[in-house]
Amino acid sequence: MDNEKLLIIRDLHKYYGKHHVLKGVNLEVNEGETLVIIGPSGSGKSTLLRCINLLVKPDKGKIIFDNEEITGKNIDVRKVREKIGFVFQHFNLFLHLTAIENVMLGLVKVKKYPREKARRIAEEALLSVGITEDLWSKYPAQLSGGQQQRVAIARAIAMDPKLLLFDEPTSALDPELIGEVLKVMEKLANEGRTMIVVTHEIGFALKTADRVVFFDDGRVVEEGEPEQVILNPRTERARRFLLSIRELYRLE
């Protein structure tokens, strides 16, 4: 595997008022790697993802993405975001646009592609996530959660990003719809895309991740091979968290 570092995070801090959310995060992601971040709710995982594509401005520390310090001054935030795809927990499709228009918006307005070219790319992206032609002109409210999330993934990958961020992409889905989304993500990982996935799906992590990070209380607590972190965590905190998650899975 190519070992070039696409993303380097150094001592990243974020405060919301007095609340210290990120307390010095250090993290590196190699090109082509799938990194899974697990950890309890409220530990700052979402904030970390939002810092990476600058939806949230970090208070201290450095983020180097694609050989450029994006936390520095005179950074074109939009250029950075264009290169980083974001998939949200609640899909966040544009409610007034059809599936294909959702995918096309960025291509037309950001990449300035002519509509025909944008449409072609959008069709390709939708097909690659299993959204067939009969669904292209449906509005988000007419699609199932799983279909909406796959359209959202298509919207992200159509922009041809260097990095894909997933913020608990299956947490808002009915259980029977989780599989179709995870399958798409697995396919993307196998295609060699660089991905950071925040999820509680430890099955997906074991199968697909190159590396797993256990995140708690605004810090990286543990990181390593999926089997090691998930099945044999070194720290007590990770052990307790993973035990409760595995318990849950067994009960299901």
């Binding site: 594509n53 939806l55 939009r78 250029k79 975001r81 264009e82 980083i84 795809g85 974001f86 949200f88 609640h90 966040n92 499709l93 544009f94 409610l95 918006l105 960025g106 307005k109 950001v110 959202a152 919207r155 992200a156 922009m159």
Partner: peptide
């Protein structure tokens, strides 16, 4: 969330 999604694809 509509804002976040729109900004995340690089819209001004």
């Amino acid at each position: 969330e509509q804002w976040e999604a729109a900004l995340s694809i690089g819209l001004s």
